[in-house]
Write a protein that binds this DNA or RNA. Structure first.
Lengths: 142, 142
DNA sequence: GTAGAACCTATGGGTAACCCATAGGTCAAG
DNA sequence: CTTGACCTATGGGTTACCCATAGGTTCTAC
């Protein structure tokens, strides 16, 4: 099957399929005449595997590693366990970051309710924001 | 003061200061002889404002808008209120996404405890992952 | 048989907020 | 006058795609 058909059967866009092919997660055959990528049913299974792995938080690069292991006949399962175990605390940390952010935002909105919209002068841009501490800025760890 | 001094006083890297200058959040003067960027105390105040705004979740582009308003003598405060009010539910949604992800990960790790590390065959890469549903993949809305 | 739709290819650019490397100019101190 | 510390501008990397473009192919209808 060609890109579009695989994409529809897997529930992703054709661009996503091409992306995975570029990133070596899929290795379709090529039609010798026109260079079209030809995917098999095994590729569809692979795509579904990729979807599940993405849903569990694995990155595309990690999934490539997992698939490479499997393609060489090695069990990728220990790797999978390790990756998940080390990723989970990162996700938890990210959640905590975002919760702290949300709390700051809510506190700000609340305390702003009784503050007027001032005009900017040479030293103040917006007292709403300036009424907050600066110090260590937020780390963006998506 | 030059880039490095502003950066140290503001608690950021010199690269970050250059980034903000490139993005028009800071508009330093230029030394006529050597082209060095020269920052004033007002720029330091501006940098501190930027830090506070970042900590409240504003993007660099949004902060540029806020500063542009203020530079034109308009109060940016209504904009600030609107931006924050519309960003907060997005943050909450992102938190919910990540919590769902974390829950999937924990469920996976738990159910995997009694599963062996299988060897890959033609149809299975890793049963650990394949034991999970695929369906709608996770949307990455950082 | 041929026009046009619908599909394919590869390439390159965009996203967010920086970080890092490079090449080359500047400056203060010893 | 030579280090070493600093400055400049440029371009590439990060993540997982999306989109536009130009040009080749296949399918469908007339």
């Amino acid at each position: 099957m060609k890109v579009n058909e695989l994409a529809k059967r897997g529930g992703v866009t054709a661009e996503t399929v091409r992306h995975y092919a570029r990133e070596q997660l899929l290795a379709p055959q090529r039609h010798p005449d026109n260079g079209y990528q030809l995917f098999s049913d095994t590729d569809l299974e692979r795509l579904r595997f990729i979807q599940r792995a993405r849903k569990l938080g694995f990155s595309v690069a990690e999934i490539r590693d997992i698939l490479t292991h499997a393609d060489q006949g090695d069990s990728p399962c220990p790797l999978v366990r390790d990756l998940l175990a080390s990723r989970l605390p990162q996700i938890r940390a990210r959640i905590a970051e975002l919760e702290a952010l949300a709390e700051r935002m809510e506190q700000a909105m609340e305390s702003w309710q009784q503050m007027p919209d001032g005009s900017p002068d040479g030293h103040s841009v917006c007292r709403l924001i300036e009424s907050f501490p600066d110090a260590p800025s937020i780390k963006e760890t998506p």
